[in-house]
Structure formats: C-alpha cells, structure tokens
C-alpha cells in the first residue's frame, strides 16, 4: 500500500492545474459506473446520441442529459460541501461549464465520467477560493432510512450510537467529513457514497489505484478518530 502521507500536501496537483477538468477526456476502457436509481438512465436515447445532438446545438438533448445526471452531480457536490446551497450553485456551474465545453468533448470517455471530473475539480476549486468554513446546511433524511439494516445496527442496544438522535448523528458525520482534507474527502465521497470503483476514481483524480485505496484508508481512519468519542 502506498503511504499516503509520503505524498505531501500537494498530492492533488492535477486538481489545481486543471481547473475545470473539462478539456481532457479520460482515456482507456470505461469500467462502468453503478446505476443511479433516481435517474431514468436506462430509458431514452443513449448518452452518445444526446451528446452528439447537443454538440450540434440541440439544447433539448442537453436537457435530457441534465435530467439524467442532475441527481448524481448534486449528490457529489452536496457530500463534498455538506451545504445544499453551495451544492446547488456548484451543480448549476458544472452543467453550464459542461455545455460550454461540449464542443471539445471527443467521446473518449463516457459523458458521465467526463462531467463527474468537472464536478470534482470545480468543487475543490470552489472551496479553495472561498477559503473559509461554511456552516452546515443539510438535506433531511429520507424515511426509508429506518428500513436499512445499517440503521438498525447503529441504533440497536449494543451500539455506542444508540443514544444519539438521527439529526445529531447526521451533524457529527458531516462535520467529521468536512474536517477531512480535500483529497481524502474526495475519495471517501466518490467511493463510499457514490459507489464508484477504485479504478474509476483513480482515473478521475489522475492517480494510481493504490493511492486511492491508501487515501480511503486514511480518510476512514481520520473519520473514525473524529467520531470516536461517540463510539465509546
């Protein structure tokens, strides 16, 4: 395993230099991303067709792409910022930027991977420019959470978290997430929340799979330390 701490503070140079990340398609085989249950991704025309039409100036085709990927991009920016107003602004910026850069999109990677990369880079740069802590502004939990086995485990009698309310748990979790560095939070959000495979994350952040795994390990360990007082 690559020791992440050896990478130094500038372990994400690619995200600083390539500000919006929209100019370069990711080469290589597409590994496929997990389907988004909230989007009608499988229905309708293929992304390639919509992208081609949008490149010809068909804004309706781009509307379909927005409908299809809006939820995922919002979820990414929201989990990266833990602030829904910022996430909304960022989501809008990401899609507008994608539309502007669409003529330069060559289709070497999927549209989704391409726009995801824009979203990651834009979010990181957005936070750097602001350079100050933002108050948490969180979305409410869905009621379905109570049917999830993980929820039952965490609130069962044997769990150290059994005495915490759901909202307390949510705040602590988001605070711990925001205390992570950009590079660690990025991999945690991409992998643990978005369900993207290590290989795909490695391509998105232009690093090796080993480094992604290492960052994930250290990020989880740091979150564990942050949340330890509630886990006793």
């Amino acid at each position: 395993m690559v020791d992440d701490e050896q990478l130094g503070p500038d372990a994400f140079p690619e995200l600083e230099s390539d500000e919006d990340g929209e100019l370069e398609d990711l080469s290589g085989e597409e590994e496929g991303l997990p389907p988004d249950p909230d989007s009608g991704e499988s229905a309708g025309p293929a992304d390639e067709e919509l992208v081609h039409k949008a490149q010809q100036g068909d804004v309706h085709a781009f509307d379909l792409l927005v409908e299809r990927y809006h939820g995922r991009i919002y979820a990414l920016t929201y989990n990266m910022t833990s602030n829904r107003e910022d996430a909304e602004d960022l989501t809008q910026e990401v899609f507008v930027k994608a539309f502007e850069a669409l003529p330069r999109f060559k289709g070497k990677s999927s549209f989704y991977t391409w726009i995801y990369r824009i979203a990651v880079n834009k979010t990181i740069n957005y936070r750097k420019k602001r350079n100050r802590k933002r108050a948490l502004s969180l979305d409410a939990f869905d009621h379905d959470i109570k049917t999830d086995p993980a929820y039952h485990d965490l609130t069962s009698k044997g769990s150290p978290l059994r005495n915490m309310s759901l909202s307390e748990l949510q705040v602590k979790l988001n605070e711990a997430l925001q205390h992570l560095s950009e590079k660690h939070r990025t991999v945690v959000v991409l992998h643990d929340m978005q369900g993207i495979p290590h290989e795909e994350i490695a391509k998105m952040v232009k690093t090796s799979v080993g480094t992604v795994r290492s960052r994930l390990f250290y990020a989880r360990r740091q979150m564990q330390a942050e949340l330890s007082e509630f886990m006793k």
């Binding site: 927005v66 929201y78 899609f95 507008v96 939990f141 959470i145 965490l154 989880r220």
Partner: peptide, 30 residues
C-alpha cells in the same frame, strides 16, 4: 461503523422543489 454511517448518508434527500428549480435554472442558462 464509519462505513455504515457513510452508507446512511445516502438517505439524505434533497428537497424536490429546489431540485426542479435548480434544473430549470440550468436549462435557462444553457
């Protein structure tokens, strides 16, 4: 346990009306 907590974050759902408005803003700007 951290993994389970992260998993629960998937249940954070944005407000539907705000999402619709956000999509409309994107389409208008496009």
């Amino acid at each position: 346990m951290v993994g389970q907590l992260m998993h629960l974050k998937r249940y954070e759902r944005p407000d539907g009306a705000r999402m619709v408005r956000n999509r409309q803003n994107i389409m208008r700007e496009v």
